[in-house]
Design a protein around this nucleic acid. Structure first.
Lengths: 231, 231
DNA sequence: CCTTGTTAGATTGTCGACAATCTGCTTGTC
DNA sequence: GACAAGCAGATTGTCGACAATCTAACAAGG
């Protein structure tokens, strides 16, 4: 018998779907930082009772993209320049580690997947789909974490990713520019295929620097931003 | 007027208390890995309805010490040798980073706090309080993370800590020995007070190795362990 | 004018009941 | 005896209603 492995069955709970909906709304910037999430209103919009909604919100609070104050409400996290800088510096350290772990495990399947994800980024770029471009770029970047075969590291990266995606989406929204059309990932992919691990790590660090520089400048700009209630 | 800053007010929701109770039960090993958490039974024991209990469980699932299967139940995570090894190797990387960030910020308050926590470990050791010894040792270890002034790093560490505490508690329980009476942290504390950062980092790595070696051997032993349902 | 106490409205936290789903056993058939 | 279908019990997921708490507006008093 062929050794085909089935993926996990779909989560058939309302809770899971709510989590996905809310997460997407937050990560794409449809829900702004600091904004309050009114349970009654959202539950009515989604045609769902408050119970699964509240459970979903609990999950997102632990995921780090919502924050909750008892009897006051649940809010989208505020984004400060320091948060971004913190995430950024940790990301550098984790990238280094992920590349180190992945390096000896690279094989043809890894290279194929690398190309596939790279292609997805290029496609989103051509289509001028900003949101998707951010998504695919992070997925490309995430491959080294999936390949590193360290479950704790992967989890950590996924938590970090949520915020990174949010930060980038906010940035793009603010700039309101279409999208960079050049390909920033060519060298990254090439180095991951090559033989010099140190070079790949070095490039990853610098690559991250490029991505974050603008982001930080932007974040410092809205540092004085005031959290605004919902409605 | 004196500039005294008030700490945050106590969480007065049942949910928060339930989270604390459950976490403690899991981290001290009172709830065994793989064990199922029956909502009705627990809610009756705690004299609480299922709503806040379920929300609490959602939080702990995201915290990584519970796992949930829709319509099947919520379980304490299984502990495999690989999980421990993964957490351990990541911990080494994070320690390195935390020490690097903390290093230039060390001051008298840091040293005082370091001594305070070290003292707490020694006291728990003298009292032969195993659980508390693990707790205080992790708190001592956590100081470099609190001092690093990187919120994302701190969060990551706290997530990791939950599991580490669980692993160590399980180990201690299995060995059923009182506790090592010697002081393993003397050198660690001394190096953090010293002038050689590299030496401190190197020692941290080796220090972790010592702690984990036993733990790994133990975990490999029960690798064949079968998840057992509740009741 | 500022402060303090009160009150109404809105929102979050919690509860008990019902619906959907799973599990194990029984039954019937071959 | 093996195996599928179906049923009963238990457990999780969801709902609507009620209780606890917060917020903001307003009144009373200094």
């Amino acid at each position: 018998m062929a050794k085909l492995d089935f993926g996990p069955i779909a989560d058939t709970t309302r809770r899971a779907e709510i989590v996905a909906l809310l997460r997407r709304a937050i990560l794409t910037g449809q829900l702004e930082p600091g904004q309050k999430l009114n349970e009654l209103r959202i539950s009515e919009q989604m045609r769902v009772s408050r119970a699964p909604l509240r459970e979903a919100m609990r999950e997102l609070v632990q995921e780090g993209i919502l924050t909750s104050i008892p009897y006051a409400g649940t809010f989208v996290i505020d984004v400060t320049a320091k948060d971004i800088a913190d995430a950024y510096s940790l990301n550098k350290v984790l990238d280094d580690f992920a590349i180190e772990l992945t390096w000896p495990q690279r094989d043809q399947r890894f290279f194929d997947e690398l190309d596939r994800r790279h292609e997805a980024v290029k496609q989103a770029t051509r289509a001028l789909d900003t949101t998707r471009q951010i998504e695919t770029a992070l997925q490309l970047h995430g491959l080294i974490y999936e390949w590193a075969d360290n479950s704790v590291l992967l989890e950590t990266w996924q938590r970090l990713t949520s915020r990174l995606q949010m930060y980038f989406a906010l940035h793009q929204r603010a700039r309101n520019e279409p999208v960079p059309t050049e390909d920033l990932h060519e060298t990254y992919v090439a180095l991951l295929k090559g033989a010099d691990m140190r070079a790949a790590q070095r490039h990853a660090r610098e690559h991250i620097d490029d991505d974050f520089e603008e982001l930080l400048a932007y974040a410092r700009g809205l540092e004085k931003r005031v959290a605004k209630g919902a409605d």
